[in-house]
Computed example of a mutant assay.
Amino acid sequence: MAFPSSEELQTLITPVASQYNMDVERIKITKAGKKSVVAIALDSDSRPTLDELEEVSNEISALFDEHEERGELNFGAGYSLEVTTPGIDHPLTLPRHWRRNRGRLVTLTDDNGNKTQWRIGALSDDEQEVALISHEPKGGKNLRVDSVRVSDSVRAVVEIEFSNPPATEAEIAEEPFEEAMKRREDNK
């Protein structure tokens, strides 16, 4: 049997991750000499702790070993398993990514390479759009509220902040989507 693909491993480990209310965000396989590396990024609404990640890692490792003993998986000479969270540079592409980062600062890069920074607000009820809040121009006193479709081709990455967000931005970020959109209409 050939070395397993990311898709095969995804199918195998998703039930284990689901038991811990976690989602498999990424699987990266690096074939390297005697020992290959299987890196799995997991996330959840409540941010996994190191203890939880260790527990899931132990279960996944045991699962891989069982399947390898039965001849259903073949990691060659061996593998190292890394289980972690996606990290701050993981792009926001799904509704759950936006929901989990509500209130945080995000940089959006459009197809032309133009970048803008916004604070993430609420998702719409159908989870197709997300509210965005920004001071315009940068550092100005006027708040701008807008939205973006989750499926749009913009690249969105969370930014690290070293200070508390402006109170008005944080307040709007906590508002329901429809309420934030009323502010957008009021500011036109």
Rank of each mutant, 00 (worst) to 15 (best):
R104Q: 14
A173K: 04
A41Q: 14
A167Y: 04
V158A: 05
F75Q: 12
K34I: 02
E169S: 14
P15Y: 10
R183H: 11
V145C: 01
F162S: 02
L132P: 11
T109P: 07
T93N: 13
Q10I: 00
A39C: 03
S153C: 00
S124P: 05
Q10P: 01
I13S: 09
L9M: 13
E52P: 04
I27G: 08
L9F: 05
L63V: 04
I172A: 05
G139H: 11
S147E: 04
V16A: 02
E136D: 08
T93A: 05
I60N: 13
V130C: 06
L12Y: 07
K138M: 04
K28D: 09
P165L: 09
E72P: 02
S147A: 05
H67I: 01
P176A: 03
V16D: 02
R102L: 01
N164R: 12
A2W: 06
R47I: 01
N101I: 10
L143H: 02
E129T: 05
S134C: 09
A131P: 06
S6C: 08
D45W: 01
Q19C: 04
F177G: 07
Q117T: 15
S46C: 00
T11K: 15
K138L: 05
E127R: 12
L9I: 15
E69G: 00
M22Y: 04
V154N: 14
A173E: 10
I13G: 08
D65C: 03
N58H: 13
I27R: 06
R184A: 12
D43N: 14
N58T: 10
G76E: 05
L94R: 15
M1N: 12
E69L: 07
A32R: 15
F3C: 06
N112R: 14
S57Y: 04
L50S: 11
E8H: 09
D65F: 03
M1G: 14
R104S: 12
A173Y: 08
I60V: 15
K31Y: 01
S80P: 01
E127T: 07
M1W: 04
E174M: 06
E174F: 00
N187E: 13
V83G: 07
P95V: 03
T30L: 02
F75E: 09
R104C: 03
E66A: 12
E54F: 07
R119L: 02
E68Q: 15
E179S: 15
N58F: 09
G103H: 05
E69P: 00
H90D: 13
V106K: 05
N74T: 05
R102G: 06
E129S: 06
F75W: 11
D146F: 00
D146W: 03
R119E: 07
E161N: 07
W118G: 05
L132F: 04
D152G: 12
R144L: 03
T107W: 01
E175W: 13
T30F: 00
